[in-house]
Simulated scan of single mutants.
Amino acid sequence: MKDPRSFLYETSTNGVATITLNRPERLNALTFEVYRELTDTFAALRDEPNVRVVVITGAGRAFCSGGDVHDIIGELFSRNMEGLLEFTRLTCELISNLRALPKPVIASLNGTTAGAGACIALASDIRIASEDAKIAFLFVKVGLSGADMGAAYFLPRVVGLAKATELLYTGDFISAAEAERIGLYNRVVPGEELEQTTNELAQRLAKGPAFALAKTKEMLNRELHLNLDAALESEAQAQAICMQHPDYREAYEAFVAKRTPRFE
């Protein structure tokens, strides 16, 4: 996999890859280059067998404040419809690649999470946040639709239609505590505990059955579109497939032997 230039990327021996948005002086605002490299990185991670879990976080006091006003917005004024679509489709490709990655993605939200940053967090599988990680889908405040980068697709499914409508219509920030209360954040911890809490979960998932976790994510994505009967049939087939995988027998044999399973 090609090393990115616009953010930090590191892997650990325990199967966890960490992406750190690294423009703290700009609250980790996204540039065209960051968008492109994030999109390509999430695609490339599908073929990295030693990576079992991905963490995305930010340097400094923000997770990500959205698109960079100077680098992106000024440039977009000079584009025609075709050029604008090229950019908006790139931002959506990032979300598509993140969701298509058959590995857990944890957003470790260290601070302000806004605009495109909020959408990246929303599309992640799990969101762990510091107490300072306020969040806003602030697109309407700059004259754009609140429906951006999958926000109108995912947010109602996470917090319900009524609350999603309010957040997308107003673009207002809500606190980390409120985000946890409505189910947008999985967990909120003091800032000094964020890294450890994130790492503990990432390592736990990395030790888990990668094939079964990938299948679970596939089902979560697929069943968003299915009726109950189709969902039940899809799950029946998914379980039958998992039952043929060596991890299923390993879990059984570990249980019988009263030891910790060693999953592939």
Score class of each variant (00 low, 15 high):
residue 4 P to Y: 04
residue 12 S to W: 07
residue 15 G to P: 03
residue 17 A to D: 10
residue 19 I to W: 02
residue 21 L to C: 13
residue 22 N to D: 14
residue 24 P to C: 03
residue 25 E to R: 12
residue 27 L to V: 08
residue 30 L to F: 15
residue 41 T to E: 11
residue 44 A to W: 04
residue 47 D to V: 00
residue 52 R to D: 04
residue 53 V to A: 06
residue 54 V to F: 10
residue 56 I to F: 00
residue 59 A to L: 06
residue 62 A to Y: 01
residue 63 F to A: 03
residue 63 F to G: 02
residue 64 C to H: 02
residue 68 D to I: 01
residue 70 H to A: 09
residue 74 G to R: 13
residue 76 L to H: 04
residue 78 S to F: 11
residue 80 N to E: 12
residue 82 E to P: 00
residue 83 G to P: 14
residue 84 L to Q: 09
residue 85 L to S: 11
residue 87 F to Q: 07
residue 91 T to Y: 00
residue 92 C to R: 15
residue 95 I to D: 05
residue 95 I to Y: 06
residue 98 L to Q: 14
residue 104 P to H: 09
residue 107 A to T: 15
residue 112 T to H: 07
residue 113 T to S: 07
residue 113 T to E: 05
residue 116 A to Q: 10
residue 117 G to A: 08
residue 117 G to T: 06
residue 117 G to R: 07
residue 118 A to M: 07
residue 120 I to R: 11
residue 124 S to D: 15
residue 126 I to M: 10
residue 126 I to P: 03
residue 127 R to N: 09
residue 127 R to Q: 12
residue 130 S to K: 02
residue 132 D to F: 08
residue 133 A to C: 12
residue 135 I to W: 12
residue 135 I to K: 11
residue 138 L to E: 11
residue 140 V to I: 15
residue 143 G to W: 12
residue 144 L to F: 09
residue 145 S to T: 15
residue 147 A to Q: 11
residue 148 D to H: 13
residue 152 A to K: 04
residue 153 Y to E: 15
residue 154 F to W: 11
residue 161 L to D: 13
residue 162 A to V: 12
residue 163 K to Q: 14
residue 163 K to P: 02
residue 165 T to F: 08
residue 168 L to N: 05
residue 174 I to D: 01
residue 175 S to G: 14
residue 177 A to Y: 13
residue 177 A to K: 15
residue 184 L to H: 06
residue 188 V to C: 13
residue 191 G to C: 09
residue 192 E to I: 11
residue 193 E to D: 13
residue 196 Q to P: 06
residue 197 T to C: 13
residue 197 T to N: 11
residue 200 E to D: 12
residue 201 L to C: 05
residue 209 P to H: 04
residue 210 A to F: 05
residue 211 F to Q: 10
residue 213 L to Q: 12
residue 214 A to R: 01
residue 216 T to R: 06
residue 218 E to P: 02
residue 221 N to A: 06
residue 222 R to M: 09
residue 224 L to E: 14
residue 227 N to W: 00
residue 227 N to V: 01
residue 229 D to V: 04
residue 229 D to K: 04
residue 234 S to H: 02
residue 234 S to W: 00
residue 235 E to A: 00
residue 235 E to V: 00
residue 236 A to N: 08
residue 236 A to G: 08
residue 239 Q to R: 09
residue 240 A to T: 05
residue 241 I to Q: 14
residue 242 C to P: 00
residue 244 Q to M: 11
residue 244 Q to Y: 02
residue 246 P to W: 05
residue 248 Y to K: 06
residue 249 R to C: 07
residue 251 A to D: 01
residue 255 F to P: 01
